[in-house]
């Protein structure tokens, strides 16, 4: 695997090597991730599925730099993030990845625009005008031009999730992580969100990783990684009926 890595022209967005995560619950130790090896290349669109307790949420927290592996290494865009400090992790979250949550996780008393601005405020370096401009651009991208000044409660679930996606986009990260992005949505809104993620992948070249237990969502992705008991038990490409010619899914990492 090291040889294959050295021959790659581009650095993978995600490279997990033998990553384990253990939690101490009183006297006994729970292994949530058990020696995971996973490479996700730039431009991939991956679904991570598995029953609850399979370790997919822990994986998501690890990929999202909210949690760190107990052992093993996690290279994000070629940088080892497995032993960064708390502040460095916050910096990484703000600059290198966008997070989309099942329950949107918008600040309820802030407008769509100011919710999207939030990551820029913490990253610093931009003036108020530049921040608002970037936030508007992101909202425009997800089709919410009419909703800048709406509060989350004034919008539908699908719209709120699109605000969430805009917030994930605003720093223009290579990687977007979505944790059950359609879990709270009806069929139509789900389809919209999936379409939005596909479009971000295909048109903007974003790498997308979605954790889901919805097989329909998973089938809409280009690659499915199946988790069970903290291990990867299956990793396959999805063949779409519409015959995606540019399917660059890799088969690997067991």
């Amino acid at each position: 695997m090291t040889t294959t890595a050295s021959t790659r022209v581009t650095v993978p967005v995600i490279e997990l090597s033998n990553v384990s995560r253990e939690f101490r619950m009183g006297t006994h130790v729970v292994t949530a991730l058990d020696g995971i090896n996973l490479i996700i290349e730039r431009g991939e669109m991956v679904a991570i599925i598995g029953p609850s307790g399979s370790g997919k949420s822990t994986l998501m927290n690890t990929l999202g730099c909210l949690d760190q592996p107990s052992s093993g290494s996690f290279m994000l865009n070629g940088q080892d993030v497995s032993d960064l400090s708390d502040d460095q992790l916050a910096e990484t979250r703000s600059r290198q990845l966008g997070f989309v949550f099942q329950s949107y996780n918008l600040l309820p008393r802030e407008t769509a625009l100011s919710n999207v601005e939030l990551p820029l405020k913490y990253a610093g370096g931009l003036s108020g005008y530049e921040r608002r401009l970037a936030a508007r651009t992101a909202l425009d991208r997800v089709g919410l031009t009419e909703r800048y000044d709406h509060l989350p409660m004034q919008m539908s679930g699908g719209e709120q999730q699109r605000v969430g996606i805009a917030r994930a986009l605003v720093q223009n990260p290579a990687l977007i992580l979505a944790d059950e992005p359609t879990g709270n949505l009806d069929t139509n809104s789900s389809a919209e969100v999936i379409e939005m993620l596909r479009s971000l992948n295909e048109q903007d070249g974003k790498t997308i990783v979605v954790v889901t237990h919805d097989t329909e969502v998973a089938e809409a992705m280009k690659r499915i990684v199946v988790f069970r008991d903290g291990r990867i038990v299956d990793d396959r490409a999805v063949v779409h009926a519409s015959a995606d010619s540019n399917d660059n899914t890799t088969e690997s990492n067991q």
Binding site: G64, L66, D86, D87, A90, E91, R93, S94, R95, F99, F101, N105, L106, L107, L118, P119, Y122, A123, R167
Partner: peptide, 16 residues
């Protein structure tokens, strides 16, 4: 608490 979680997730440091 949740607001704090959201802020942390989008890049707020402990200090922030």
């Amino acid at each position: 608490t949740r607001e704090i979680g959201i802020r942390r997730a989008v890049g707020a440091k402990r200090r922030d």
